[in-house]
């Protein structure tokens, strides 16, 4: 190139070549747009299907019954279609797994951001994130064949299928979500704030708990919400370990069923197409979709508020 300039050669490209290049650029842009559209269209398609079949369901079952009946027995007579027992199951697993994941995830995030040396962090962080890569079916199997027998040694009246071991397995599964995202939020807390606290005679723990965690609080809340919404949407672990008994209970030692667990159960069973049982999974799916959507929106809102707080 430089030589070409030095030799005074003509650097202009021919108009034809330039037009060809413009066309190529346009095609590339279109292809990339298409790639993006695939996932958008898929989402739209899913929501449409969900909506259409949910409408079908509600032509046979009243919304009132769906929201207030306290039994969910679409597969036996008398049939009841009350979502509450399934919501209860999902709620139990969400809360139980959060009880496992929040202290452990937050503890490891505080360790990684405030205590660990760079070398330890470089080793431990990726290891923790491997937890997120384990297929959930492996967790479910692990819960059923290892955690439950272990727990049954200490808890006599623990049922074979129970919410507790599912909570533990789901909790472990979502630890990396809590720890990784909260650590990011804590690392983003400016060093100057830590120094300010140290200069007042604060200990490492005081700096972590009274300065870093509060300053990163919204980020941590967002991490927890995202983790819990993963727990809400988790299906294999609860289908394998938590049982298939929808009931209104807060006792984690019993067998329960979550919304996702019910969908798995019906999807693999021999429910006839077009029956009300068949449509019920769409109604449950819609309820699940709305719950996780609300949680994700809430998490986004928290994160945005947090960023504005830092800028102000």
């Amino acid at each position: 190139m430089a030589n070409a300039v030095a030799e005074g050669r003509d650097l202009r490209v021919s108009p034809r070549w330039r037009d060809a290049q413009k066309r190529r650029e346009r095609w590339i842009a279109r292809l990339l747009l298409l790639a993006g559209l695939v996932s958008v269209l898929t989402t739209v398609g899913i929501v449409l299907t969900l909506t259409v079949d949910t409408v079908q369901f509600f032509q046979q079952v009243s919304l009132w019954e769906f929201l207030t009946d306290d039994k969910w027995t679409p597969l036996f007579t008398p049939k009841h279609f009350g979502i509450l027992p399934l919501l209860n199951g999902t709620f139990l697993v969400a809360v139980g797994s959060a009880l496992v994941a929040v202290p452990l995830g937050l503890g490891s995030a505080i360790y990684l951001s405030e205590y660990a040396s760079d070398r330890v962090r470089r080793v431990v962080k990726p290891l923790l994130e491997i937890l997120a890569g384990i297929p959930t079916v492996v967790y479910g199997y692990f819960a059923l064949t290892y955690i439950t027998p272990l727990l049954r040694r200490y808890i006599e009246n623990l049922e074979v299928f129970n919410a507790l071991s599912a909570c533990i397995a789901v909790g472990v599964m979502i630890i990396p979500t809590v720890s990784s995202l909260s650590e990011d939020a804590m690392v983003a807390v400016p060093r100057s704030l830590r120094e300010a606290a140290y200069a007042l005679g604060a200990t490492r723990l005081e700096v972590a708990l009274k300065v870093v965690v509060p300053a990163a609080f919204s980020g941590i809340v967002a991490a927890i919400i995202l983790a819990v919404s993963r727990a809400v949407g988790e299906s294999m672990i609860v289908a394998l370990a938590a049982g298939s008994t929808p009931k209104l209970t807060l006792n984690p030692l019993e067998s329960i069923q979550t919304m996702t667990g019910f969908i798995v159960q019906v999807s693999q069973g021999d429910v006839g197409y077009g029956t009300v049982e068949y449509y019920s999974i769409y109604a449950v799916g819609m309820a699940l979709f709305l719950v996780t959507l609300a949680m994700n929106l809430f998490a986004r809102w928290v994160v945005r508020r947090y960023q504005e707080g830092v800028r102000a």
């Binding site: 100057s192 120094e195 005679g201 300053a215 830092v310």
Partner: peptide, 16 residues
């Protein structure tokens, strides 16, 4: 550090 206070180059109040 408790007996020797410090004020930094850039104001660094806590977000409280």
């Amino acid at each position: 550090r408790y007996r020797i206070g410090m004020v930094f180059q850039k104001p660094n109040p806590f977000p409280k």
